[in-house]
Design a protein around this nucleic acid. Structure first.
Length: 724
DNA sequence: AGTCCCCCCATTTTT
DNA sequence: TGGGGGGACT
């Protein structure tokens, strides 16, 4: 069989990784070293030459996007649709397992997935039920506690409280919360993983089945696995020695949400037969950028060790711009991008990366001022928008009356005269009689002791949902969604909301209808073209699970040619020819919150490493001498990360024109010297004042403020005459 | 029930 | 500086 198209495009290390014999391995894949390529080619190679059916393969990723991309790339290698192979996220695959083995997992058949918002609401309710003061015991903190425990694989009974009030209280909340979840058949994200793990531990026959089925397990971004995820993988691998993990300890940046860099550091000990293959040749960045990144990360201890290299040459030096303040910093970046575009490049080949979202606003304003189209990553995603969640709440209730989270969410949206008092009564009945809110509401209506007013508002809601149910029997998914929205009263409710916001919400509701119309469960992981379908899960439930598990894109229109603004975290995995790292200051990056513990500082350094290695050709580091943040001025020192880069790799863009700092850097050039503030004469633009300059020799440019505005000019072509 | 105001807080994000 | 949440007031 001809597999040349699978092996030929690979370098030696990549080829070695792809053609490893069947055993466990750690592929240490540096930034831009062809990690995804190795994974996908490995899979194609296993299928084409090792006689392994796609059915016998499992590939796990962290994000839906990565899973989808992997599938597409394997399919294009195989030149055929990939059927039967499980490619998905830890959560998606766990969800599927739980659906298939719901009885053994001790879950109701129609269990629902709670997302972060549902979870917070439930924790609030549970804390209130325990009589805890929301001020003293913030629900967000309790959620964090619960999730971290679950990420570590810990149930309340496994946790020691050390007679400590903090622990005791949170344990009580965790316990009560878990009971509420069990009662309502609800599963949060962390629970999906923990539950699937327990499913295997408690049911050896099920575990054996999957161990027999999968002859190879492949994991992407292994450095981001948390304790449960690694335990999950180890249980599944058992003694089969068939676990291939790909990752980069130097790019582990999610410790704060449970990821354990130790997992990748200890992999070789846990899998004694495994080998390590390093992918160090980089196909993305210039030599200077790689040298800078290598040096920087060399300051971290306990690395597995890896040095990126390229055979493409050093390229330009890294530019460092010291600005007067954050506004000047943003202006400089914007002007630099404008020039980049004027030179014939695309906006979306440039990216501005920053440590924290708060930095984006000034940058955004600078983009607007220069009329540069931009796109800010992050923000609310489609299925997380309030209007979408409200609509889905109704839909959920139509399919499942006992869905308390949905009940709470929509019972008074749009407002229908259901006061907090009334709701509290419903909750009370539900609590006392151990029934769902829906049943409690029904009982309250039947109970004659209620005032007519309250009775009406409750029964109005109950019959509305019954109505929706009747009106949507036997109807397809799209029609169902459409009719439920129509009956819900959400449309007139949002029409009243002034501004474009209401309009946007209405559009989103419309989009939800079409999303339902084009929803194809065959593309969804929980179904399988080989007929491994999960019995009796309705298309509707499937759609709702999909909405929880895959929150969708943050914004549409992402295909337009825009400057890309995002945090360094969200930039992981991406690359851009022109990259700015803004706010290279102590306290901001590394962030002050991470300074105390050495481990967290190292994670900041890894984040910086990620940032640096996003750049393909041109890299600019910027910092501000003064930065207004949270309403007060900060005077931060230059980030230690900049000083950890060898000086000879950095070229300072020296200039100031914002006044407050007096500068008289001289610009040497053939016909004389300019200094900032120097008056000059240009043949076409007339008189002007030098504001700024960068570059050296015949690359030098000056920014001159002429009467018609400021312009950047190449010193060697502009023929400027000094005057005065 | 809805609006307004005040107070508090402020890193990073996926599922 | 600004957003979100909670409480108070209408």
């Amino acid at each position: 069989m001809d597999v040349s198209h699978i092996l030929d495009p690979l370098n030696d290390a990549q080829r070695e990784a792809v053609t490893l014999p069947k055993q466990s391995a750690l592929i240490l894949a540096g930034a831009g070293s062809g990690k995804t390529r190795v994974l996908t080619h490995r899979i194609a190679w296993l299928i084409k030459t090792q006689g392994i059916s796609p059915f016998g393969l499992l590939a796990v990723t962290f994000t839906n996007k990565a899973a989808a991309e992997m599938r597409v790339r394997i399919e294009s290698l195989l030149e055929t649709p990939l059927t039967g192979m499980w490619v998905g996220t830890f959560h998606g695959i766990s969800h599927r397992l739980l659906r298939m083995h719901y009885e053994k997992a001790k879950l109701p058949k129609n269990f629902q997935i709670m997302d972060a918002d549902d979870q917070l609401r439930l924790v609030k309710r549970v804390s209130a039920g325990l009589g805890l003061d929301e001020k003293q015991w913030p629900a967000r903190q309790a959620v964090w506690f619960i999730n971290s425990q679950k990420d570590e694989g810990l149930r309340p009974k496994n946790i020691e409280d050390y007679d400590d009030l903090y622990l005791k209280t949170h344990l009580a909340i965790y316990g009560a919360y878990q009971e509420a979840c069990e009662r309502g058949g609800m599963v949060d994200f962390a629970e999906l993983l923990l539950r699937a793990h327990e499913l295997w531990l408690n049911n050896p026959e099920i575990l054996n089945h999957y161990q027999d089925r999968f002859s190879a397990l492949l994991v992407d971004e292994f450095q981001d696995t948390n304790t449960v995820q690694y335990a999950w993988l180890r249980v599944l691998a058992g003694d089969r020695d068939n676990l291939i993990v790909v990752g980069d300890d130097d790019q582990s940046i999610y410790g704060w949400r449970g990821a354990r860099i130790e997992n990748i550091q200890r992999f070789s000990e846990d899998f004694k037969n495994s080998q390590i293959i390093r992918l160090e040749q980089n196909y993305r960045s210039t030599g200077s950028i790689l040298k800078a990144a290598n040096h920087l990360i060399g300051n971290n201890a306990g690395r597995l060790g890896k040095e990126l290299w390229t055979d493409e040459g050093d390229g330009d030096l890294i530019n460092l711009y010291s600005s007067y303040n954050e506004i000047d910093e943003a202006r400089y970046i914007a002007e630099r991008i404008a020039r980049w575009v004027a030179d014939g490049n695309r906006h979306d080949e440039s990216a501005i990366l920053y440590r924290s979202n708060a930095q984006s606003r000034v940058l955004e304003e600078a983009m607007l001022r220069l009329q540069l189209p931009y796109r800010i990553y992050g923000g609310q995603r489609f299925f997380e928008r309030a209007e979408i969640r409200n609509a889905l709440g109704y839909i959920r209730l139509v399919s499942q009356r006992d869905a308390d989270a949905a009940f709470e969410r929509v019972v008074n949206v749009p407002p229908r005269g259901m006061g907090n008092r009334t709701l509290e009564e419903i909750r009370e009945v539900a609590r006392l009689e151990q029934v769902s809110l829906w049943i409690a509401a029904e009982r309250l209506v039947a109970d004659s002791s209620l005032t007519a007013r309250k009775k009406n508002s409750i029964s109005g809601f109950l019959s509305l949902v019954e109505d929706m149910d009747e009106a949507t029997r036997g109807v397809d998914l799209e029609t169902l969604v459409e009719r439920v929205i129509e009956k819900s009263g959400l449309v007139p409710y949002y029409e009243k909301e002034r501004g474009e916001r209401g309009q946007a919400r209405l559009e989103n509701l419309g989009e939800l209808v079409s999303a339902a119309g084009s929803f194809d469960p065959k593309q969804n992981l929980t179904f399988d073209p080989l007929g491994e379908n999960i019995e009796d899960v309705s298309l509707l439930d499937e759609f709702l699970s999909h909405a929880s598990l895959e929150a969708g894109d943050a914004q549409g229109g992402s295909n337009e040619d825009c400057v890309q603004l995002m945090t360094m975290h969200s930039a992981k995995g991406l690359e851009f020819p022109l990259v700015f790292l803004a706010g290279m200051e102590e306290g901001l990056f590394p962030h002050r919150m991470s300074l105390e513990e050495p481990g967290r500082l190292e994670e900041e350094r890894r984040l910086c490493y990620v940032g640096l290695t996003r750049a393909m050709r041109y890299l600019y580091l910027t910092h501000a001498e003064s930065r207004r943040l949270n309403g007060s001025d900060n005077y931060n020192r230059l980030s230690r990360f900049v000083t950890e880069i060898p000086e000879e790799l950095i070229q300072e863009v020296r200039l100031q024109n914002t006044g407050a700092r007096s500068s008289n850097f001289d610009i040497n050039q053939t016909d004389g010297e300019f200094s900032l503030g120097q008056r000059v004469l240009h043949a076409k633009f007339g008189e002007g004042v030098v504001l700024n300059y960068e570059g050296q020799g015949n690359q030098a440019r000056v920014q001159v403020n002429f009467s018609e505005g400021s312009k950047w000019l190449m010193v060697s072509f502009a023929n400027l005459e000094t005057i005065g």
